[in-house]
Nucleic acid binder design. Structure first.
Lengths: 199, 199
DNA sequence: GCGTTACGAGTCTGACCCGTATCGTATTTC
DNA sequence: GAAATACGATACGGGTCAGACTCGTAACGC
């Protein structure tokens, strides 16, 4: 994206902020409507945004750069654990997985799975989005250990995968159609807490 | 795919089996090399297979039909749990998730994530592949309950998601680069068995 | 008002692809 | 050997798209 901050000098007409927004919005809309990443064309975006193709090329080098910016815009706010009960905080965090303020996110997320393995940029973007959320969960788990609610010998990283995995495969991959997504966060957290072994 | 069995009548030259194989192989190769499903073109497949386009169109109605057949060919054999220890069987099954006899499968799997949410056919194909594997795990869990190794009040479906999810997000989405994939099956199974709660 | 830059809209060239058709040739049955 | 069907190769019309370009117009600083 072009720099916006350090440009006190502007001899001619400034770039339209509305065009910026319209282009990004059009991109996300088209993706959410079912277009695949690579079926997405600059021409379609321009038409949808009510913008000339040149206006897009003036701002981004190509489709990849535009997509990177558009997806960055999508990530939204993170859930904030209350900090009272470890169990409740975990339920909150697990429930927030794959959920987003922007409803388009749910449709777009699965499209990223192939991109993540193909482009280092996309992989980095993906990690940038999820790693602070992982950190949040990590802190809750550490707090649980400190408070003595969780065992001290657990592997925190594996536990995060344990909590995150079921939710993610259900939301993104529709892994098991018979599984009720609504109550899943609670049930996952409780199962992980208690274990399934007889004792 | 055209029928091959009930064709005792064949007035002319029979279809080449080598062409069949070459086309399927070329399709899987191209996918494994990083082509996305929709970037895949019949022309590219034909060239790669050393085959005329007409030869492909003579066998399949279009790209979708060909892909369906190609992916069917990919799924490979299921792991067979030994039936001695519930824990060991679970480790085996969890370790088999996303692992395939065909090394190309690992590269191709992530490409299916978007397709699953877009086409009912692809979703069905995907479910057809994984639901027998889910069944296998379900049986091991039920056996564990019967044998008294596992608690009787666990939710079997949630437990399957618990075991499968971490492995799947790691193998398919590279969820956490710091997580060691090699030892993950064991660690996931043990964590799920024991739970993380202090007691 | 003048130079500068952005704007939406459109054009143009060169790719690439689909799906069909047509080559000359090869392989089968009768 | 004749009819039938397959083969690889290639050509075709029709389509989409990338990017660079051109319009006439609009918004800014001086």
């Amino acid at each position: 994206m072009t720099s916006t901050a350090d440009a006190p000098r502007s001899p001619g007409r400034p770039r339209s902020i509305r065009a910026d927004e319209a282009i990004i919005e059009a991109t996300l809309d088209l993706l959410a409507e079912g277009s695949t990443i690579e079926a997405l064309s600059i021409e379609a975006i321009a038409t949808r945004a009510g913008v000339g193709k040149a206006t897009i090329y003036r701002r981004w080098a190509g489709k990849d750069a535009l997509l990177l910016d558009a997806l960055r815009r999508l990530k939204g706010v993170m859930a904030q654990p209350a900090g009272h009960s470890v169990r409740d905080d975990l339920v909150l965090l697990v429930g927030a997985i794959g959920k987003n303020v922007d409803p388009r996110a749910a449709k777009i997320m699965p499209c990223l799975a192939p991109a993540v393995n193909r482009s280092a940029d996309q992989f980095q973007l993906y990690q940038n989005i999820i790693s602070p959320r992982r950190q949040l969960m990590r802190e809750v788990l550490r707090r649980g250990i400190d408070e003595g609610v969780l065992r001290a010998d657990i592997d925190v990283e594996v536990t995060m995968a344990l909590l995150t995995g079921p939710m993610l495969i259900q939301r993104v991959l529709q892994w098991n159609p018979d599984l009720d997504e609504q109550s899943l966060p609670e049930r996952v957290v409780d199962a992980v807490l208690e274990g399934i072994q007889a004792r």
